[in-house]
């Protein structure tokens, strides 16, 4: 068991067009690692072979060039079941970068809610387009 009280996390699977993590994406991930508001708690590459076999490339295997580790909060949180769920979305012969990104900024809130016995009854991610459109409509 972990002593850390994590905030909520987002699970992203990003398809990699040529099956490789390109420099722009790698740099974006490196930038995320330096961001205190979030924590990249898991990062891997899921590959689906032409024959449908599924494999997951771990960071330790150098799947994301320039990113060898995630620091002390990095954990293999995504399970084999998640890997398979992602693989189902992939065409044979393609790959996806999977990132589990924790909202570190919410840790204090999670702890406070727990202590207060308060519950999150609704949590909804509002797409940026909707937020911006709503803001625009305010004039």
């Amino acid at each position: 068991m972990s002593d850390t009280i994590y905030g909520p996390a987002d699970f992203y699977a990003i398809s990699l067009s040529n099956g490789d993590v390109d420099d722009g994406v790698r740099q974006a991930v490196v930038d995320l690692l330096g961001n205190d508001a979030i924590t990249v708690v898991d990062l891997l590459v899921v590959r689906k072979g032409e024959d449908g076999t599924v494999d997951a490339g771990e960071l330790a295997e150098g799947v994301v060039p320039g990113v060898d580790e995630l620091g002390e909060t990095g954990a293999q949180l995504a399970s084999e079941e998640d890997v398979e769920a992602v693989a189902e979305l992939l065409e044979p012969g393609s790959a996806a970068l999977v990132a589990v990104i924790e909202h570190t900024w919410a840790r204090g809130l999670v702890e406070a809610l727990g202590k207060a016995g308060a519950e999150v009854v609704l949590a909804e991610r509002i797409p940026a387009e909707v937020v911006n459109a709503s803001a625009d409509s305010l004039g």
Binding site: D55, A56, S79, E80, E81, V83
Partner: peptide, 27 residues
């Protein structure tokens, strides 16, 4: 190769979906 720690556990996606259904907070 799939890391050993990943094997034999429920998935984040599936668990989150099931939890939301059970808690009645499926948005």
């Amino acid at each position: 190769m799939i890391g050993r720690a990943r094997i034999g556990r429920g998935g984040l996606i599936g668990t989150a979906a099931r939890t939301a259904v059970i808690a009645g907070t499926a948005t």
